[in-house]
Each structure stands twice: as C-alpha cells, then as structure tokens.
Amino acid sequence: MTARTGRRLLNAYVVAMMVFLALPIAIVIPSAFGEGGDLSFPPRGFSLKWFGAILERPELMAAAANSAAIALVATAVSLVVGTLSAVALRRYSFPGRGALMTLFMAPLVFPAIVLAAAIAMVLAPLGLIRTFQGLVLAHIVVVLPYVVRTVSATLAEIDRAWEEAALTLGASPWQGFRTVTLPLLRPGLVAGATFSLIISFDEFTISLFLVGSGMMTLPIEMYNYAEFSLDPTLAAVSTLLILLTTLAVLAVERTVGLGKQFS
C-alpha cells in the first residue's frame, strides 16, 4: 500500500465518520417540517405547524425558561469562581496544588448518576428539591470544570512578563489583574461561558432527582413528552436547539477561535 492510497483511505474514512457524527443530528431537522403526526422518515409534505405547536405547550415553554435561567445563573457564578480558582492554580505554587486541580476536574469523570443522587440526598432535607436554587447549585458543579479548564488554558498562553511589567510600574496586584490579565483572558472567558451555558442548558442526569412538577428543565420535559407521544413538536424544539448551538459555536469560532480552546 503506497502512502498515497493510505492517505486516500484515511480521507474516505474521516468523511464516513463525519457523516456518522452528523447524521442523527441532521435528520431531526427535516422531521420538524413534515405534515404527518409521527416522526417517520422521509417526512410527508411540508408544514411549519409544529413550530406553532410549541407555543401551545406551556410546559415546554416554562421548562425552556427555567433551563435558560438556570444556565445563566450557574454560568455567572462559575465564571467568577472558576476564574479565581484558575488564577490561583496557574499562577501560585502551594502544597496540594495537584490534588486541588484533580478535585476541580473530578465532576467531569464522576459517574453522573451517583453525583445526582448524592446531591439530591443533601438538598432534600434542606427543602431545595424542585427549586430553582437547588438546580443552580447542582449545575454549578457540572460546569465549573469547563470554566476552570478553558480559563487556565488561556492563562498558560499569557506571558507573565506583561503582568510583571505592570507590577514593576507600580500597579497593585488587583490593578495588574484587572487592566492586564483580565483583558488578555477574554478568549478563555468567552469560550468558557459559552460551553458552560450550553452544558447547563442540556444537562439531563444531574437534574434528574431535583426536578418535579412546577420546576422542570427542558431536556427532562422533552424526555417526558417523548415518553407520552413522539410527535414532530419535539423535532421542532430540537431544530431550534440545533440552530442555537450552531449560532453559539459560530460566535465563539469567529471571536476567539475554537481550536485554541481544545488544543
């Protein structure tokens, strides 16, 4: 096998895998525009009625509003807390730094269902089940690692000489941070905030034991809805979610570049 055939095989394989990754997402979109009442493929006819049908589902609308509010508050809190932690972990040396880094990343790999059950056991006696505050607290733990990661990756790229120059010129550490480091951190903050918003908005398992009548999140409401009837209303909601995600990804790509956040 020559190097050239090898390369062609690899290219063909990569194209096939891209189709595999995109197909289950792309297929949802045409299903939202069908006339029939089921999720068959290919859809019959063309209609926008399922987007209108979303408005007649107050439970979906309320759940979407809850999810958006939870994502906003959880992101705001973890952006502040995560940035402070990332600065400490990257810029200072102290005993136990490695262990703390592991602690901050732990929610990423801890079996989600176990974390969800454990958080519910703590929040239940406090009366925080089925409350906005309870869900926000749980979501903070899930998104914090993403913020710490993106911010500390950006911090590693910033030349310390800039900060040291500010300090030498008489700036206080806080002034140095606010006028030098923080503006340089912007790409990491934008990317961290976007991922955090998306991940909180889509979070399913962590919310599982914390939701209930009166306080639902969109993913769980969608799941409950699907259990009851699988009609194109859900495909319409999903199409809107795909659109939102695409816009968010494009915004990050345009402003700071996604590649930097993952390498």
Partner: peptide, 8 residues
C-alpha cells in the same frame, strides 16, 4: 459540534 448538541 455533536458534543454541544443536546443529548435529547
């Protein structure tokens, strides 16, 4: 991209 699309 798939990573960021809702799991539902």
């Amino acid at each position: 991209f798939p990573l960021l699309v809702s799991i539902v």
